[in-house]
């Protein structure tokens, strides 16, 4: 598998392999944010702290993957577009989305009362998820022009004349990265459960 050669696309050259790393970062982030959003809804419906824990930890790991997505994207851009950052709908939208969820984490840390914190951040998370999709995905797609593949007038990678070698690694990579993200999230969740159990035993 390692020696299968994907098409080296024009100026992308060998960096087309970044498709297996940069792109799944965002897929993972969106999956984790989706989990966060669903669990926030469940929290507001049931008031069980379990859902708030899942929602907050997955958002936290999502922020990590977003940061790695931004960093890898910036590096890729430097050596294919010639600049670390361009004034592009996709780039700015993704950065805004990332900042929204950084604000979510800060908001959580600033509220002391657990019940209030859970309610407040659940409402924030439910509102932030559609906004994230709008900023990082829908608006760039609607934009008149963009350098980023899959947005504006630039076609996505699935539109390029690829041979199927790239797909053979891309889909497993997406699945693998999403599972990786969820695994790290689950470690955090389990740690928090133990801490909560300890606290409740003390009372």
């Amino acid at each position: 598998m390692l020696f299968i050669n994907p098409n080296n696309l024009l100026f992308l050259d060998e960096t087309v392999r970044n498709l297996n790393f940069h792109v799944p970062m965002w897929f993972t982030m969106i999956s984790l944010l989706f989990i966060s959003c669903i669990n926030s809804i469940l929290y507001l419906r049931t008031n069980k702290i379990k859902y708030d824990i899942i929602a907050s930890r997955s958002a936290e790991v999502a922020v990590l993957f977003g940061l790695m997505g931004l960093a890898t994207g910036s590096f890729w851009a430097r050596f294919s577009w010639g600049d670390w950052w361009t004034d592009d709908y996709k780039l700015n939208g993704a950065a805004i989305g990332e900042l929204m969820y950084l604000a979510y984490l800060i908001l959580r840390n600033s509220v002391e009362d657990p019940g209030k914190r859970a309610r407040l951040s659940s409402v924030y998370s439910i509102m932030a998820f559609p906004l994230f999709l709008v900023f990082a995905w829908i608006l760039p797609k609607m934009a008149a022009n963009s350098m980023h593949p899959g947005s504006g007038d630039t076609v996505g990678f699935n539109q390029y004349p690829l041979n199927n070698n790239l797909r053979m690694t891309f889909y497993p990579a997406v699945l693998g990265w999403i599972l990786m993200g969820w695994w790290i999230t689950s470690l955090q969740i389990r740690n928090k459960y133990i801490t909560l159990k300890l606290e409740s035993d003390e009372d």
């Binding site: 050259d13 960096t15 970044n18 790393f21 970062m25 790695m68 590096f75 294919s80």
Partner: peptide, 14 residues
């Protein structure tokens, strides 16, 4: 080398 080290750098960042 066809910018292969950009891929190396990206993997290192992750």
């Amino acid at each position: 080398n066809g910018k292969i080290y950009v891929v190396v750098a990206v993997i290192s960042i992750i």
